[in-house]
């Protein structure tokens, strides 16, 4: 097999992990460990495919995936932030819950029909670059390019902006953040939700762009 094609596919598949990781970084920076990423991704993949099949619009599917996974993440947020239960066990519970729910709701979905995928295209000039062009910029899904954009943006957000500073403060020294008037609970809920949204985006990317379909 042509190594270029393998690397090209690697970039596409890696995008899924990239989104999930970005979300988890934001969650963990706020001081919450969420081991339920897998469950949220599956919920995202299932709801993205299901929405795309019934509406015919993959973008809507992506949106629903992000919302569904974000909603599921709030279970973990409530248990670990308000009830102060152990984050490791709660996160694992979320994995089981997400896997189970997506299997139950996704039953029979694999035969439900076909979907139109998210668009793929090449970037005009960059795709001409020797070696890197065919791997990174030729006929990749729009989600891959979104990944390229989001990564530096999130870095900038965390390290160079005021809300990013709040995020790091809440994670590294919650008591100090609290005495400066930052609501620790509210920010943690928010970033667990954002982590879920990114996991949903990752799941949606699987079922709408990388390996289309839903297999239970």
């Amino acid at each position: 097999m042509d190594p270029i094609i393998i690397l090209q596919a690697g970039v596409a598949t890696g995008t899924v992990l990239l989104f999930a990781t970005i979300g988890e970084i934001l969650t963990e920076r706020s001081g919450v460990l969420n081991l339920g990423v897998e469950g949220m991704m599956l919920i995202g993949a299932m709801s993205a495919f299901s929405t795309a099949v019934s509406t015919g619009n993959p973008w809507l599917g992506l949106l629903v995936a992000m919302l569904a996974a974000g909603l599921l993440s709030q279970v973990h947020a409530f248990i670990s932030i308000h009830l102060q239960a152990d984050q490791v066990v709660s996160g694992l519970a979320l994995t089981f819950l997400g896997t189970g729910i997506s299997l139950v709701l996704g039953e029979g979905l694999s035969k439900a029909g076909t979907i139109s995928l998210l668009p793929r295209f090449s970037i005009p000039l960059l795709s001409q670059t020797p070696l890197l062009g065919p791997i990174f910029f030729t006929e990749q899904s729009v989600m891959v390019y979104l990944g390229y954009l989001l990564t530096p943006l999130v870095w900038y957000y965390i390290n160079r902006t005021r809300p990013g500073l709040h995020l790091r403060a809440v994670g590294e020294h919650p008591a100090a953040a609290d005495s400066l008037g930052i609501s620790v609970y509210r920010l943690r809920y928010f970033y667990v939700f954002i982590g879920g949204v990114f996991a949903g985006l990752a799941g949606g990317t699987i079922s709408l762009a990388i390996s289309p379909g839903w297999f239970s």
Binding site: G39, A85, F96, G98, G100, I101, L103, V104
Partner: peptide
């Protein structure tokens, strides 16, 4: 049992409820 995900889902719900009940 069909759908096959039911036991896994029930396991997940039981675990979530247990952790929450520790409160």
């Amino acid at each position: 049992i069909q759908p096959s995900g039911i036991p896994k889902m029930i396991q997940g719900i039981i675990l979530v409820a247990l952790i929450a009940s520790d409160f």
